[in-house]
Amino acid sequence: MLKKRIIPVLLLRDGKMVKGKKFRNYRDTGSPESAVDVYSSQEADELVFLNISQNKNYFIEFKNIIKKASKKCLMPMTVGGNIKNLEDVREMLMIGADKIIITSEIVDNFSLINEVAYNFGSQCMIVGIDYSYDKSSNKYFVWKNLFQNKTKYELFEYVDIIKKHSFGELFLNSVDRDGMMGGYDIDVIKKIKSSINVPIIACGGAGNFQHIEDLFKKTQISAAACSSIFHFGDNNPIRARTHLRNKGILMRNLK
């Protein structure tokens, strides 16, 4: 049977690994190289690296980190942030990424989704969505450029548009829950799951193992992305896996 995945997310900014709250107030959380070592020894199911530097010159250093990580760890690696075209995708795959997340660049260029899928396979193309609740209209909206620009797209309408394209997974990131450690956005995730048939990775909100358990018990989605829960405190993927397995959730067997 297919197992549920727990995917640590590493946010990289100007050479440092960071974590913020609601896409703001980033705190330094150590060196990305040592995080890769740790997650590799803990046999994380996958790793996601997101480049959130505003500094465009940082892209080269980001690529060096990915290159080094891919030599060290054999686990599937997904890379995102500042990937604008097929050339960027090709380069990331060449240096060891298995899958690519594209978020902001898709909003004004839906055809990029199919182009990546055609050239590198749909399994390689992960569509990212950053969304936030808008109080005045009582709706969720899609945001781009790291929660700097609100788009015209209401979340569920946006999902209906992108689902006409060919891609492998959906990376659903709740800005409002980012770094808050108060649990996943179950209702929204459920609603999107019912309208789309690709695997969904939920991101934003994991603060303890109960939150991950709730996500997997209350929704049918495939994967929980986690960040703060592993950065702040002594939790790790091995403990998470053991906890969830004891609660009857199918998790990966290493042996």
Binding site: L2, R5, D45, E169, N197, P199, I200, S222, R252
Partner: peptide
Amino acid sequence: IPGKDEALPHVGWNN
């Protein structure tokens, strides 16, 4: 052809 509650692609860890 995915079964009930299954998504496509088949991605992740399986035995």
